[in-house]
Design a protein around this nucleic acid. Structure first.
Length: 294
DNA sequence: ACAGATTTGTCATAGTTGGC
DNA sequence: GCCAACTATGACAAATCTGT
C-alpha cells in the first residue's frame, strides 16, 4: 500500500491511501441508514480475514463499540468514541499498551474505524454550555454504518467459500476412500489388472496435495481422482459383467467354446489391465457393492 | 522436533496541552 | 520554564505459532 507521511500539529504520522479512502467513506455514509452495531460486528468477525483484521484488533473494536451508548447506529449521527488507552485495555482483556496501539492501527488500516485526532493527540470531547458535545476527538465508528452492506456481502462470500471448501474436502475424502477400497477389492478378488501401477498413480495424485491446500488445488486433485475413480470402477464393473456372462453361458451353452473374441474396455487399456484367468462366478460377490456415483 | 515467521512486551524517544 | 499526563512510533528480544 502506498504510504504518505503527513505532518500534523502533534507530530508525524504515516497515512495510507486506504485510511484516506475510509475517511472519505465515513464522510459519505448514507443518510438515514440504520444498522445494528452488533449485527455488523458479527459480519466483520466472519469477514475478518478478507478485511485483513487481526483477532485481537476485533477484540478492541468490540471494546470501542461498547463505548457507544446506542445499539442502533444512524448514518447521520455522531459516532465518535473517546476512551483512553487505559479504558480500552480494561475492556480488551488487559492487553499491553503497545499491543493495543498496534491493533488500533490495524483497525484504522482496515478502514473499520477512522482516527479523529485532537491537537494534543488525546481523546476527549469538548462540551458546550448546554452540556451538549460540540467536538469529539477519538475514533470515528461511522465506517460501521457506511460499509455495513459491504461487510454483510463479504461475510456471505466467506460463508459460501467455507461451505465450498468443506464440500470439496468431503468429496476428496469419499473419493480417496472409494479408490482405496476398489483397489483392495481388485487385488483381493483377483480382478486382472496391474493394480500396483494403479496404486502408484493414485499415490502420485495424492502426493500433490499439500497439508493446507487452497480450494482450487483441492478441486483439481478431486477432479483427477474422479477420473481415476471412473476408470477403476469401469474395470471392476466390466469384470463383474463378464463373470455373470460367463456363468450364464456355462449354464445354457456349455458346448460352445470360447471364441477369444472378447475385447478390452477403454478403462482396461488405460490402466494397463490384461485379461487373465477368469475366476468363478462366486468371486464376484464382493464386487456387487461397488460404489455408485451420482 | 525443529526452523522460520509472526506476535507480543519492554524500552527509549518525541510530541502537545495544561497547571504551577 | 518545568513537570505531569497522555499518546504515538520504532527497535529489539522473547514468546508463541505454524508448516514440514
Amino acid at each position: 500500500m502506498q504510504t504518505h507521511t503527513v505532518t500534523t500539529p502533534f507530530g508525524r504520522r504515516s497515512m495510507t491511501l486506504g485510511m484516506i479512502a475510509s475517511q472519505v467513506t465515513a464522510q459519505t455514509a448514507p443518510e438515514g441508514a440504520t444498522v445494528h452495531k452488533w449485527h455488523v460486528f458479527r459480519d466483520i468477525k466472519e469477514a475478518r480475514m478478507a478485511l485483513g483484521a487481526t483477532d485481537r484488533a476485533l477484540a478492541i473494536l468490540d471494546a470501542l463499540l461498547s463505548f457507544h451508548p446506542e445499539t442502533a447506529f444512524y448514518g447521520d449521527s455522531a459516532l465518535i468514541v473517546w476512551p483512553s488507552n487505559e479504558q480500552l485495555i480494561g475492556r480488551a482483556n488487559g492487553m499491553s499498551p503497545a499491543t493495543l496501539r498496534r491493533h488500533l492501527a490495524n483497525l484504522v488500516d482496515c478502514g473499520l474505524v477512522v482516527r479523529r485526532d485532537s491537537p494534543n493527540g488525546k481523546r476527549y470531547a469538548r462540551k458546550g454550555q448546554g452540556g451538549e458535545i460540540e467536538q469529539a476527538y477519538g475514533f470515528d465508528l461511522s465506517p460501521i454504518v457506511a460499509r455495513a452492506v459491504e461487510f454483510k456481502e463479504l461475510a456471505e462470500a466467506v460463508r459460501a467459500e467455507k461451505k465450498a471448501y468443506k464440500v470439496v474436502k468431503e468429496r476428496l475424502t469419499i473419493c480417496r476412500r472409494d479408490i482405496a477400497k476398489m483397489i483392495e477389492t481388485g487385488i483381493e478378488e483377483g480382478v486382472p489388472g496391474n493394480w500396483g501401477t494403479v496404486h502408484v498413480e493414485y499415490q502420485a495424485i495424492i502426493s500433490r496435495l499439500p497439508r493446507t491446500a487452497p480450494r482450487q488445488v483441492l478441486e483439481e486433485v478431486a477432479a483427477e481422482l474422479d477420473d481415476l475413480w471412473t476408470q477403476i470402477r469401469d474395470v471392476l464393473e466390466s469384470f463383474v459383467k463378464s463373470q455373470n456372462l460367463n456363468a450364464n453361458e456355462s449354464q445354457t451353452e456349455r458346448h460352445i467354446q470360447n471364441s477369444n473374441t472378447e475385447s478390452k474396455t477403454e478403462s482396461e487399456r488405460g490402466l494397463g489391465i490384461k485379461r487373465e484367468a477368469s475366476g468363478s462366478a462366486g468371486e464376484t460377490d464382493n464386487l456387487r457393492s461397488l460404489p455408485k456415483r451420482e
